[in-house]
Design a protein around this nucleic acid. Structure first.
Lengths: 235, 235
DNA sequence: CCACGTCAAGAGCAGTGCTCTCGGAATCGT
DNA sequence: ACGATTCCGAGAGCACTGCTCTTGACGTGG
């Protein structure tokens, strides 16, 4: 009953994958703007209308690609941060994210650039989007940070937002980080935005004429952010 | 001889402006993706082909809008940082940029989001794009920073890039910042990327579920960055 | 005054996303 | 094993896009 069902389903799943692969290929060449359903259909040897059996719209295809991209970069970060001292894990995660971003600039732009269509549905994407920041949070939870400088005290409202963030439950029923003090979460937010701010500037060309190539600036800043977080010095 | 010529030219300049204004209007509503030459022409009561007398292509129109946007946010930042103590100028510039970004999210996306077409020509845009970072550099030049913490030493190559950056000449023949030590320029680069990293995350929806609304996080981070830069404490 | 340069208009091309309908094929219930 | 149902690819077609080329009118400068 489901050997045959899965036969159909398997064919369907395979073709769905092929469509996404071809779309990703065109994405890497021409960018999201130029990606057209008709041309991926053409390339796959089918007619454009047939493709609508698999994705209800161009936006839905894009959304699928967005989720895949979040998962791809998230997985890279997770793998990179698997083991080592906190500072080493932080370094490796940063470099893994940058390597992925530079290898797939258009996919990076898809997820961290301007939201392309009439905004892809957020809810499906959040779980995947959270994987990178979760890597950072895990590093912070398993270390005892001693930040390089204090910084201004948190305001009441901000501390509240951060505490609520730490209490949020993931899809698998765990709380994100009930043990992390708001100050630590705040520092995490800062380095998170800094990391992707750097990558966006590098990939979107804001660095041309200043720190371009950005390798050394990136490395230095990653180290500075580790100090800022208070990750114990390496070696 | 040129009273009449300028008569023609004035009509032309006016219509060029009207086209950009209408395009900006549609941009604010539908986003850059949906902006179509035909519909701005339609709205202006002319036929699409006539519009090509003013902009050679859709991309050229977009590029014009990009330059205008850079100039708009640059001017806001300059105005905001006109006077006051360094820290106050920094604060006001940051808030001016954020206010503009929130008021014109699609224009912000145009310049700080993913590069839209096959990359708009950079050279025309750099002068306008540099206005915001130049505001920051001017603040740094007119203060005597005492940063809140040292951070790792600059590598040789990075220091070289930053010195070269300081020696670059602006269109009006001035050097950018020959007097600023590389360490200071490096801190400037960091806060610059942090500022726009935060804004991009806020506007592109990465903060939903964490520090959303981002007002307090933004304010706090601006202050923290001022400490990081070593701007003398206010009052 | 008239020729030249500028301009808006229109038709047309190639391409797009998306819809609907139509036959054929695979699958399922019996 | 067969009929019913569900799925799927093909094709035509609609409304739209950016862009090109030609045509005819208008204002201006010699």
């Amino acid at each position: 009953m489901n050997a045959s069902r899965t036969a159909r389903d398997r064919a369907r799943a395979e073709l769905t994958q092929e469509i996404k692969n071809e779309a990703r290929r065109q994405l890497a060449v021409d960018g999201a703007l130029k990606l057209s359903l008709r041309s991926v259909a053409r390339e796959l040897g089918m007619v454009s209308s047939a493709l609508y059996r698999y994705f209800a719209s161009r936006d839905e295809l894009l959304t699928a690609l967005i989720i895949d991209a979040y998962d791809a970069v998230g997985e890279r970060a997770e793998k990179a941060a698997e083991e080592g001292a906190p500072r080493e894990r932080w370094r490796r995660a940063c470099h893994a994210v940058r390597a992925w971003a530079r290898a797939h600039p258009h996919e990076y732009a898809l997820i961290y650039g301007s939201p392309i269509p009439g905004y892809a549905a957020p809810q499906d994407t959040v779980a995947s989007a959270a994987r990178v920041p979760m890597v950072l949070i895990r590093i912070l939870r398993e270390t005892n940070p001693s930040p390089a400088f204090e910084g201004p005290p948190l305001t009441e409202g901000l501390a509240g937002q951060l505490r609520a963030l730490g209490e949020q439950v993931t899809p698998d029923g765990e709380r994100i980080a009930p043990d992390l003090p708001p100050q630590t979460l705040n520092r995490g937010m800062v380095v998170w935005t800094q990391l992707f701010g750097m990558l966006s500037f590098e990939l979107f060309g804001q660095f041309v004429g200043s720190v371009d190539p950005a390798d050394e600036f990136f490395d230095h800043t990653v180290e500075q952010l580790a100090d800022f977080l208070g990750l114990p010095p390496a070696r």
